[in-house]
Simulated assay, not measured.
Amino acid sequence: MIPSAFDYAAPATVAEALSVLADAGDDVKLLAGGQSLIPVMKLRLADPAMVVDLGRIGELSGVRDDGDALLIGAMTTHHQIATDPLIAEHVPLLAKAAATVADPQVRHRGTFGGALVHADPAGDMPAPVLAADAAFILAGPEGERRVAAADFFQGYFTTAVDDGEILTHIRVPKYTGWGAHYEKFTRVAQQWSIVAVAVMVRVEGGTIAEARIGLTNMASTPLRATAVEQALVGAALTREAIASASAHAAEGTDPASDLNGDAAYRRHLAEVLTKRAVIAAAGL
């Protein structure tokens, strides 16, 4: 199928894009990489009267140092996230997760911000961003505001971005020297994650001093595995201690049951994948 007819705008600045949105009304969609929007438009699951293409807005792309954090443009591609030297040094979890997204073609076209605003519970980028305590910078008619990652994801395909707003940047604190790993489980190559786990740990003196863990596809939004995080702090750097802490991975989750597996299966996967990811992040 092909999409219904729609009007098209390609603004060159954020201010111009906000002006177009204000004039377009409610029946408008923003186009980032298009890897999610275009397929649903072809299926007529989305039928906007106008599409606003953000691809010409250069200020929305790239990664820059922002003191104690990295500032990542929403239009930065997954490939750029996976290969950027600043991200590799300071937030390697993002690079590891981005490298698993779909296939090379999608990674070169799909965008970091687009995937986050799409908020698919099986998407690979929300959980790492949540684990990293990132902040989302939104531009709108009333100016700029920041939303913490913990408040950004609100439900299935639903975020804190209001009508008339644009996600411009994601500010991610630096975790220089931390170990990181992203472990995902799929039945076939390039499939959406049935379950995935994003892990960062700071090791000090033979123990785990800090841990941050995000879960993919264990609820309608990404979740922090707080029970595991708490159990890991101060734990000996052994596989046995990590396995004991990882047994708490499914606590507080609400996984769906579908053709890929029921809720019990996903809870089991969460425990197994968390153990694997923490062991890998800790360098054991």
Rank of each mutant, 00 (worst) to 15 (best):
Tyr8Ser: 09
Ala10Met: 14
Thr13Asn: 00
Val14Cys: 05
Ala17Gly: 12
Ala24Gly: 02
Ala24His: 06
Asp26Val: 15
Asp26Ser: 15
Asp26Arg: 15
Val28Cys: 10
Ala32His: 05
Ile38His: 14
Ile38Gly: 10
Pro39Cys: 04
Met41Ile: 05
Met41Glu: 13
Leu43Phe: 02
Leu45Asp: 08
Met50Trp: 05
Arg56Asp: 14
Arg56Pro: 09
Ser61Met: 02
Asp65Ser: 09
Asp65Ile: 08
Thr76Asn: 01
His78Ala: 08
His78Gly: 08
His79Leu: 11
Ala82Trp: 07
Pro85Gln: 11
Val91Lys: 03
Pro92Ser: 00
Pro92Asn: 03
Ala98Ile: 06
Ala99Lys: 12
Val101Asp: 06
Gln105Asp: 13
Arg107Met: 09
Arg109Tyr: 05
Gly114Met: 14
His118Trp: 15
His118Met: 07
Asp120His: 10
Gly123Ala: 15
Met125Gln: 13
Pro126Cys: 08
Ala127Met: 13
Ala127Glu: 09
Pro128Gln: 05
Leu130Val: 03
Ala132Val: 03
Asp133Asn: 10
Asp133Trp: 01
Ile137Asn: 02
Gly140Arg: 04
Glu142Phe: 13
Glu144Ile: 14
Glu144Arg: 14
Phe152Trp: 09
Phe152Pro: 00
Gly155Thr: 10
Gly155Pro: 06
Gly155Cys: 10
Gly155Asn: 15
Phe157Glu: 11
Thr159Gly: 10
Ala160Thr: 09
Val161Ile: 11
Asp162Lys: 15
Gly164Ala: 10
Gly164Ile: 10
Glu165Pro: 11
Leu167Lys: 03
Ile170Lys: 06
Ile170Cys: 04
Ile170Glu: 08
Lys174Leu: 02
Thr176Pro: 01
His181Gly: 01
Tyr182Cys: 07
Thr186Pro: 02
Ala189Val: 15
Val195Met: 03
Met200Ile: 05
Gly206Pro: 03
Thr207Asp: 00
Ala209Trp: 00
Leu223Asn: 03
Arg224Ile: 10
Thr226Val: 15
Thr226Tyr: 15
Gln230Phe: 05
Leu237Ile: 00
Arg239Met: 09
Ser244Cys: 03
Ser246Thr: 09
Ser246Tyr: 05
Ala247Asp: 14
Gly252Ser: 08
Asn260Asp: 12
Asn260Ser: 09
Asn260Phe: 14
Ala264Met: 04
Tyr265Gly: 02
Tyr265Gln: 01
His268Cys: 04
Leu269Arg: 13
Glu271Thr: 15
Thr274Asp: 08
Arg276Phe: 11
Ala277Thr: 02
Ala277Phe: 06
Ala277Trp: 05
Ile279His: 07
Ala280Arg: 12
Gly283Leu: 07
Leu284Tyr: 04
Leu284Cys: 04
